[in-house]
Simulated scan of single mutants.
Amino acid sequence: MTFPIVRHRRLRQSAAIRGMVRETVLTVDDLIQPIFVTYGSGVRNEISSMPGVFHFSLDTLEQEVKEIVDLGIPAVLLFGIPESKDSVGTPAFIDNGIVQEATRKIKSLYPDLLVVADTCLCEFTDHGHCGMVHTFERDGHVCGDVLNDESLELLVRTAVSQAKAGADIIAPSNMMDGFVQAIRSGLDEAGFNYIPIMSYSVKYASAFYGPFREAADSAPQFGDRKTYQMDPANAREALREAESDVLEGADMLMVKPALAFMDIIRMLRDQFDLPLVAYNVSGEYSMVKAAAQNGWINERAIVMEMLLGMKRAGADIIITYFAKDVARWLRSDR
């Protein structure tokens, strides 16, 4: 049967009907709010390229976390900016590292808030890469090779130290081959076999990370990350990356960035049955904020449509700097 017997607009006639037949729903339980923590006191500094996102010192962190909890957001993702850096990222895995200290503080204040610890070295290395680097000169320029296998031990130490501090979920973002297997084994050997791994399984070498580099002070000092992060032109490779992580023991899979890679989210959703995370990254956030501040777009409508698209593509969880905004909007709609 077809028109005029079939009229699709019948199911769009009122808000009540539209709500009744709505296929995709975004809730506050879907959200994770990233937080940037640093040393010092009284620090609550807005990141210039990310309006509304701040660096927090440990003494100002409580107010931010209280707001997140009061809004009903179930989880935070912690990034740390250390006092000093070295060639192997030592501040990432020491017991009194900034992420470890922030984790302890948050769990002491709000034990039920999930703390997801980003497990990488780039914020903590003086060269800005996500692992150990062998450096050399070529034509008068400093170059380097990121050493995959040698980096795994450091990533394991980081994950274990984060778990000891009370992190509920370990989220390795380094894109080294074999990182899930190494971290899973390290966590299990240290007695943390119950701690899940949220793997940055499909992480592209993306231009959308620009504002994050400022926020985390993690820009590479030479070269780029294209030898270990994925080429944005590739899709089938994403399935190979994700399959490796599944076989190595990942508990959740992630696609990063999200907005330009909705097809990849759908591919993983169709192929794997693990919970799927979409990372709505800094560049996606900042360009919406900038357009909204110029009065070019309706920020709320754009953000909700964008995040619904990620859910519709297959994401179960969304990491987004809009999490607090979305939680407020959802609450106001009740």
Rank of each mutant, 00 (worst) to 15 (best):
A102S: 14
N148T: 15
Y110T: 04
A117D: 00
H134T: 10
K107Y: 02
L121E: 03
N148Y: 11
H129K: 15
G128K: 15
H134I: 08
L109M: 12
F136Y: 05
A102P: 13
T125M: 07
T125D: 05
T135G: 07
T125K: 04
C130L: 13
C122K: 05
H129L: 14
G128E: 06
L113K: 07
T119R: 01
E137Y: 12
Y110W: 02
H127N: 14
T135W: 11
D145E: 15
H134A: 13
G140H: 03
C130G: 14
V142W: 12
H127K: 03
C143E: 15
D112L: 10
F124D: 02
T125V: 08
V133A: 06
C120D: 03
L113Q: 00
V116E: 01
D112H: 07
T119K: 03
T103P: 04
G128T: 13
K107E: 00
P111Y: 06
R138V: 06
C122E: 02
P111S: 15
V133P: 01
D126P: 10
H134R: 13
D126F: 10
Y110V: 00
L147Y: 07
L109I: 06
D145L: 13
D126M: 11
L113F: 10
V115C: 01
A102I: 12
H129V: 14
I106Y: 00
V115H: 02
E137F: 11
G131M: 04
C143N: 14
D126T: 12
F136C: 08
K105F: 03
H129F: 15
D112Y: 09
L147V: 12
G140W: 04
K107T: 01
D126S: 15
S108V: 00
V133F: 11
H127P: 14
C120W: 02
D112F: 08
C122P: 01
T103E: 03
L109E: 06
G131L: 05
M132I: 13
H134V: 11
D112C: 05
C143T: 13
G128R: 04
R104V: 09
L113I: 09
D139Q: 11
D118Q: 03
C130F: 08
C130P: 07
G144C: 08
F136E: 07
T125R: 07
L121W: 01
H141C: 05
D139V: 03
K105R: 10
V142C: 12
H141K: 15
R104Q: 07
D139M: 05
G144Y: 04
T125W: 06
K107R: 03
C143D: 12
G140K: 03
G131Q: 03
F124Q: 06
D139P: 06
V115G: 09
D126V: 13
P111T: 15
V146S: 04
T135K: 10
D118M: 02
H129C: 14
P111L: 15
L109N: 08
L147I: 15
K105E: 07
R104N: 03
G144N: 00
L147W: 08
C130Q: 07
L121I: 06
A102D: 04
K105P: 10
S108N: 10
F136K: 08
V142Y: 08
Y110D: 01
I106G: 00
L121R: 02
N148Q: 11
D118L: 04
G140C: 09
R138D: 05
D118P: 02
